[in-house]
Amino acid sequence: MNPSASGWIDKFGHLVKDYHDLYDNFDELYAHLKNIGFIYGINVSIPEFIHPEHPLSEDEKAKINLLTALYFTYRQKSKTVTFSSFLEEIFEFYNQLGINKISFLNKILTGKKTSSQLEKLIESRIYLDDNVISKNFNSIITNSLLYIDVLTFKNYLELKTDPKKHAEKLEYITINIIYHTLSSKQKNKNDAKLAQLFESSLTFIDSTQDSFDGTYRSKLINNFTPRENSYFLDVACLTVWEDQSLEYKESEFIFSIGKDLGIPSKQILKSLEDVAVFFEKNTLQIPHLKNNNLAMQFYDSMSKIVNKLILRNSKRLQKELSESKELVALLSKSTVKDLTEEEKKKVQKQLLDIFKSIPSLAIFILPGGAVLLPIFIKLIPKLLPSAFDDNRVDE
């Protein structure tokens, strides 16, 4: 399954049909979503029943996890529902939520098929904005409050209330808890990044207009479901966590918030332990903890983009490269020694000619696209025939 290509939702429906009873209840689903990072807004993995052909980017994992969470939330409503009825329901839900701004061009390209239009809606929920340049330069590109969609959808299924108003309430409480948790503890270098990440993910409220004076605390008592309260607590635990320090376990603020939410001390300790274990296992995969300079951020982001393009077009590239033995020889040479200026120009010209024949690689032929060629050349060896690569070690 390729979440970056059209038809991925239908493919998900085909794969999930043998796993309808994967979770016995909503609590099991929540525990799994927390384990893979979706609850924390940091998607480090996906459900085991999905086996992608290529390594997935963080945004692709977020797409799969959001759809998984929504689908199995719907399954809790009735064990006899069909995937097509789920698509209709979730599409109507997002329409009522106001997440239905598909451009006229996209409507023409996707047609009237529900799953195709839903792919565009979900994509609009995943990214913080639609600015391609911003995505390329920013290593944090995915919405970190996606679980609010799931909680709102559950409320919508059970009570048929206005989903937008409920989403606004959930966002308001969540962002207030984040800000007040940050102010309750000693600041560290990652706090600003975490706050920026969550604030950038807001959809239904304006953080510049809403007040964060602590009055939200009175709204916590008996106004939300136990599952919503668990989410608020986990977000607070995520925010108070400090570089694997033991001090977070003694946070008076967390236990005070937990008390307001009506959560027992034992569950609060479990939530604190869960976030500590998650960070300990996945620190290297968490974007906002990386402190690279701008140059390194750019290089890392570009490498991910180019790597994804190579993987997605590997068969076409192999075919095109096989027809240009001189280019393959020069690319192979570039992996072990520097090319002359004349050879570099020859490689660039021939590569751009190949990219013109593969539409999804058009990024390379845009103005400034040549800056990506060194990254492409570094990542390309695995595609080259072994006869042209004397230093290849087969794994």
Rank of each mutant, 00 (worst) to 15 (best):
N292D: 14
K135G: 09
E250V: 06
F224C: 09
T181F: 09
Q209H: 02
K79F: 05
K11R: 15
W241N: 10
K185F: 01
L383A: 06
E58C: 10
D18L: 07
T283E: 03
S78M: 06
L327C: 12
I42M: 15
N293P: 11
E60T: 01
K219L: 08
K154H: 12
K337P: 05
I42S: 02
S251N: 05
L269Y: 09
V277Y: 09
A276T: 00
Y216H: 13
T161E: 14
S103C: 01
F253P: 07
T142N: 15
G214M: 06
Q267D: 11
F38M: 05
L327S: 05
N155D: 02
I310S: 00
A167D: 07
E123G: 15
Q196I: 02
D27G: 08
Y19N: 07
Y179T: 04
T152Q: 04
Q297I: 08
V393R: 13
D260T: 07
A236G: 04
S256V: 06
S134H: 08
I177G: 06
T152H: 10
K189N: 14
H180T: 03
I141H: 08
E123M: 04
I36T: 08
D191T: 10
E247W: 11
E60K: 00
A236E: 00
K344I: 14
L330N: 03
T225D: 12
L327D: 02
N106C: 11
E252C: 07
F204R: 01
L121G: 06
G41T: 01
I148A: 12
N176V: 08
E89T: 10
I141M: 03
I9E: 05
H14I: 12
P264D: 13
S84R: 15
A387S: 10
D389C: 09
K290D: 07
T203H: 07
N292S: 13
M296E: 15
D260C: 14
F279I: 04
S115A: 09
